[in-house]
Amino acid sequence: MNEMSSAVPLTGVPFPAAEYQRRQQNVLDATAAAGLDALLVTALGHARYLTGYYGGGTYFAPFPLILAPGRAPTYVVREYELETVRAFSCIRKLVPYTQEREFAKVCAGVLRQYGLQNKRIGLELRCWNLAPSDVYGLEAELPGLTIIDATELVGSVAAVKSELELEAMRSAIAMTEVAVRTFRNTLRQGGTEIEMASAMQAAVRSAGGEELKVVSLVFGERTRLAHGLPTDHPIHFNEPAVTEIGGMKFGYAAGLVRTAVVGRHREVDSLLSLSNEALDTAIDMIRPGVAAEEVDATVRRVIERSGRPQAFRNKAGYQTGVHWSERGNLDIVPGVKEVLQAGMTLHMPIMLFGESGHIIGCSDHLVVTERGAKSLASTPRTLYRVDGN
């Protein structure tokens, strides 16, 4: 607990005030560089990065964080959530609205008070938590307002992690690896996905972890599902198991994909070998100054040379941090010319489709350093085999 903690027990923000002030100033600098007079942040991950608030009440309507030069950061929030936002954020200027239909009027009132009613305002138009009706409502209240898409602005700042953030990522990956070891040690013929998920969650709790995010956990024929949540489906002899899981720390997520097989499965062997080859090749070229599209192209060349170009139907990786991922953050895909910088963290899941439809692969979670990419994880990416007994 630090100097910004609430008087409410067991609340507060995870980082010191200076860390949030640094982030906010960097975003304000980027806002000015983009030719904008102010920024309204609505994406959950971006708002949490700048305030500490986890966003539990924002399903109701947007909670925009207004950043403008010379003004205190201002959070427009639902009145019902006022004390929760105060308790879990570093923002002291809170402006409430009561009903959803009041959002545009109240938010417009703040912009008008700050002299921004005829200015260029950035909005995260391609992120979650902002509906077209919210934008139309602001435009109706402030017809002189010029709204600019600033979806990628906060993500570009948040991509480079401070040492405090990297510490959180290391704590998160430690819990991911607790779950990975449990996945390998408890997989057995006849065991179900639900049983496995419960075992991994219990292991993380026992190790003192905050949370385990299970993005996917599928056995056998259900490995045809890209993001399959665990069910009572059991694993049988000569079948694969694939999981994508991530430990959490202060909202920072560190995911890994791992594959195992009970018995033998020739196609799984082949696909995972190719996944590892493509991932190793990508890791070898990751360093500051390399464009995201170059890393993606490297992965695709390896897969094309294998004679199975249609096996890869995903992105090569993406920026990580607060929340698992956020629209507007850096993706390692074709056409993205943004360059990698030291301090970025990346999840690189190379997932491949087999001829039978199984989706098999592995991943690494990396931090970009001045010398290249360094894995945050220590557990091997190779196929884990369980005999059928």
Rank of each mutant, 00 (worst) to 15 (best):
T146V: 15
P69M: 02
A292K: 01
Y97H: 14
A253W: 01
P96K: 02
L130C: 03
G263S: 00
D284K: 11
E239N: 07
R184K: 08
L340C: 06
T11S: 12
V386R: 10
R184I: 09
V302Y: 03
L164F: 15
S89D: 03
S171R: 11
A168I: 05
V135Y: 00
F353Q: 13
L138P: 03
Q310P: 03
T182S: 02
T281H: 09
M285W: 05
T320E: 00
A202Y: 10
E211S: 00
G35N: 13
N129V: 01
P132D: 03
V268K: 13
D269Y: 01
R92F: 02
A342H: 09
I66T: 07
E193I: 08
L145S: 09
P349H: 09
G191H: 05
G52R: 11
I283E: 09
E210T: 02
V135I: 15
P288W: 11
A140Q: 11
L67Y: 07
I91M: 06
G57L: 10
Q189E: 13
R126S: 09
R188C: 11
P9S: 05
M169P: 08
P380V: 15
I148D: 14
H227K: 11
G289M: 06
Q189D: 00
A311Y: 01
R184L: 12
R22D: 06
Y53G: 13
R181F: 11
A108Q: 00
L217V: 09
G122K: 12
N2D: 08
F15V: 08
P288Q: 07
A282W: 02
E3P: 06
D387V: 05
S162M: 08
K161S: 09
V261C: 01
A226G: 08
V76N: 04
Q341D: 04
A311E: 12
L225Y: 03
S198W: 07
